[in-house]
């Protein structure tokens, strides 16, 4: 089992915490544990209490959404150096998506309740921590919006409505590239 000192070293080596103060890392290490998941195991399950998040050290994890009557939809994959789980930050602290190990995964799990309590007691730690998560959430939101655009979809699926149609109809030459008119 990893010691607090060992966990602190792992935290320091993770991109999410690499430039965090030693004091803050020490506090977080008290809420951390080393975990291993095998292929197909779930790190998080939608609807479960969100009392933990993970810092991925090795491996790949699929963030999934399930809908009745269809197979799971993979929204995103996360890899070494990334963070899994933000629901522990936001009431009612319920996990929003599944997180499934695609292969062998090594991760640091951080107890969200423990960390929330420490952030409530130490506002500078709370600010430092929330700043990092705000940036992470902004990056994920931007990425999700780009995915929603369906950038590579067939142009005819997204042709301008007649009122917005450009002078050249979509069937006219359009690209000095692989997709012709």
């Amino acid at each position: 089992m990893a010691t607090i000192e060992g966990l602190d070293r792992m935290l320091a080596g993770h991109p999410f915490f690499e430039d965090m103060s030693e004091r803050a890392r020490g506090l977080i290490a008290g809420c951390a544990a080393n975990r291993v998941f095998h292929r197909g195991e779930h790190l998080l399950r939608e609807g479960d209490p969100a009392d933990v998040f993970y810092l991925l050290r090795h491996g790949s994890v699929a963030i999934e959404l399930h809908a009745p009557g269809r197979s799971a939809l993979v929204l995103e994959t996360l890899r070494d150096g990334e963070v899994i789980g933000w629901s522990w930050l936001v009431p009612p602290y319920r996990t929003q998506f599944d997180a499934r190990a695609i292969g062998l995964v090594r991760a640091l799990s951080i107890n969200g309740k423990c960390l929330r309590d420490k952030c409530a007691e130490d506002s500078s730690l709370g600010y430092e921590f929330l700043s990092r998560f705000a940036r992470l959430l902004a990056e994920r939101l931007t990425a999700t919006r780009l995915q929603l655009l369906d950038l590579y979809g067939h142009p005819s699926d997204y042709a301008a409505r007649p009122a917005e149609r450009p002078l050249e109809a979509p069937t006219s030459p359009a690209k000095p590239g692989p997709s012709g008119p």
């Binding site: 067939h154 359009a174 692989p178 012709g180």
Partner: peptide, 25 residues
Amino acid sequence: VPISVSGDPDRPEQLLHTIRAVGSV
């Protein structure tokens, strides 16, 4: 239609163009 060449520039005798069918041409 304008289409980028998608083949090997060192094999100009075999001219390749990869095209998406999206219009009349």
